[in-house]
Amino acid sequence: MNPQDMKPKHEPWYRSKTFKRFRRNPLAITGTVMLIIFVVVAFLAPAITAPQLATIRSARPCVRNLGLKRGEVVQALRNPLKLTFWRAAIKPPKSCYNIPRAGYSPLPKPPSKEHPFGLTSGSYDILYGLTWGARTAFYIGFLVVGISLAIGIVIGGVSGFLGGWVDNLIMRVVDVMLAFPRLVFVMIVSVIFGSGLTQVMLALAVVGWVGYARFFRGDILKTKAQDFVDAARALGSSPTRIFFKHVVPNSIGTLLILASMDVGSIVLTAAGLSFLGLGAPVGYADWGQMISFARGYILGTAQGTPFDFWYVWIFPSVVLVLFGLAWNLLGDAVRDALDPKS
């Protein structure tokens, strides 16, 4: 008999009780809908901002790299039957991530017909920064979670598989890193690595793997204690075969689901760093930076009303909070569905 047969039988995921619990939770649905909107906005960023690309002079490198002439930008980017539409949405040139500047004025400008969300100080278009920033947010979130997961799975796996002093050493390091405030830790590591988007993402991953390693190790120890692993051992499978064929596939599922829910908090932390000034270069479409553009204008002008420049900080901060909220609503519902007792 194959030891795999001793495992509890699984029904398809969409019929499982877990998914039913998730589906019936109104907060889960709200979170999912919000996220879908974010995905759509991120995907359609070139189409949404086509008028800005067409009119603002400093958007020329992006337009040129897309192989377009100035007159045809809006038409090409908004027509799903054209190839450029898909090229711009799926793999736009890097130059498109630079927010076009409609001038060099240090004073923000209120929303107008050409700039629906207004201009920040330095005349960066807010709508452009937010829509393209959504793409940056998803990119940062998924890549960082992916890298941290890879590191966490390898280190947690080694720790759980080998046990003994290796396990002890790794877990002490994990304890120390988990007890340390995350934002401060990421701040220091990104200072060590230097500023820039890639560096900040690396710093987030260097700090982020810890929780996954501990979770994966704990799960491995739990799975190792189950009957089917004993059965496999009795049949003479080698420890390596048991580990990779039986233990890992049984432990990894929950980890993957829980980790994917961290995308939101990663993006929030990255935005915090960006706000501090550690992050993407100036002018790169990134939400944290959009908020830091607003820093000098939160209180309005000295002689005017305090809310003179409301648009520079309200739009970016609300978008950022909604993004975090969507992921947390989803994550909360997922954790609830996986563990209905809590």
Partner: peptide, 11 residues
């Protein structure tokens, strides 16, 4: 609680 948890401190 979820909103409070989602609010970045700087915002």
């Amino acid at each position: 609680a979820i909103i409070g948890w989602s609010l970045p401190t700087f915002v």
